[in-house]
Design a protein around this nucleic acid. Structure first.
Length: 295
DNA sequence: TGCGTTGTTTCACC
DNA sequence: CGGTGAAACAACGC
């Protein structure tokens, strides 16, 4: 489930492996992935060289000379696999297709082949993702249209003050609030669960019931979780089961398993229609003061 | 086989 | 206008 860390990993792979390389062939086997694209034919990219790769929230932008940019959103199950002529592989995003298996896989829908023989394979087992090819001048307007809030990590990461202000108007569960890309950009279901566990906040705590101190702790936890994800090159979740490295993810995808902090049992509930994992002992709901009858 | 899965958009409503 | 909650949508595997 590609979120900010998985998309950032893809961006770094593109920057490292593809910058300065010229496209010599394009193979789009599932044209509907470009259904919302201003330019429907990625064949336009042949002869163009990758200049850089950018990321805003979960949107990846690959800039080519010739003033064209390819925007990609991986949604549930997008994956990028870059394979060099010597066979070396760099993979980011969803764990299917298997990184050490054959490419193209049946869910590999789009390939870019470069002048040195490097191939970029774009896969999407669910086909929920999208690709949009547009003039470079259209990228900023296209990104602005999402109305993303500040990023959860990196330069210009959201501040505690900004997050607190945004939460003040909301009575929705805190988990739902941090999944709102207009509040903080880049957090998805996995990292929301991890950040809340790290900050010891119950996912159903009303957003506007958190003190400044707790919001500050949450902000730091969001940054920590995203950075941890980036450091690992993304989290590995297969069939709703986590494969943690260094105790991360700590709760997501670990229903019924012991909490790494208290040894209690990780539970799964539904919050705002999303599968939500947490430790009921470590993340207690801070009930608003019950108005005990006085006199 | 129907359900679960996600990010995003849209819509009705207050 | 803005917040909320629900529904819709994309499609597949178990």
């Amino acid at each position: 489930m590609p979120e900010l860390p998985e998309v950032e990993t893809a961006r770094r792979i593109i920057e490292r492996e593809l910058t300065g390389r010229r496209v010599v062939a394009v193979d789009l086997r599932l044209p509907k992935l470009f259904r919302d694209s201003e330019i429907r034919d990625p064949g336009m990219l042949i002869g163009q060289t990758v200049v850089c790769a950018r990321r805003r929230a979960k949107v990846l932008a690959i800039d080519f000379d010739g003033e064209l940019s390819l925007l990609v959103h991986f949604k549930l199950a997008g994956q990028l696999a870059v394979i060099r002529p010597d066979g070396a592989r760099s993979i980011a995003g969803h764990p299917v297709p298997k990184p050490d298996g054959p490419y193209p896989h049946k869910s590999t829908h789009f390939d870019l082949r470069f002048d040195d023989g490097t191939i970029a394979h774009f896969s999407d087992i669910r086909q929920f993702g999208w690709y949009r090819l547009m003039p470079a001048s259209q990228v900023q307007p296209a990104i602005d249209a999402f109305k993303f809030g500040p990023e959860g990590t990196g330069r210009d990461a959201i501040t505690s003050t900004q997050l607190f202000a945004a939460l003040q108007r909301r009575s929705i569960p805190i988990k739902q609030a941090i999944l709102d890309q207009t509040i903080v950009a880049g957090v998805g279901n996995i990292y929301a669960d991890e950040a809340l566990f790290q900050a010891r906040i119950h996912p159903q705590q009303p957003a506007n019931s958190l003190s400044r101190a707790l919001v500050s702790r949450l902000r730091d936890a969001i940054e920590w979780a995203l950075d941890m994800g980036i450091a690992q090159g993304g989290a590995k979740i297969i069939h709703q089961r986590a494969y943690p490295q260094n105790d991360f993810p700590a709760v997501h995808g670990r229903e019924g398993e012991p909490c790494i902090r208290c040894g209690g049992t990780v539970r799964k509930i539904t919050v705002a229609t999303r599968g939500t994992y947490f430790c009921p002992a470590c993340q207690r709901l801070r009930k608003p003061k019950t108005n005990v009858t006085t006199v």
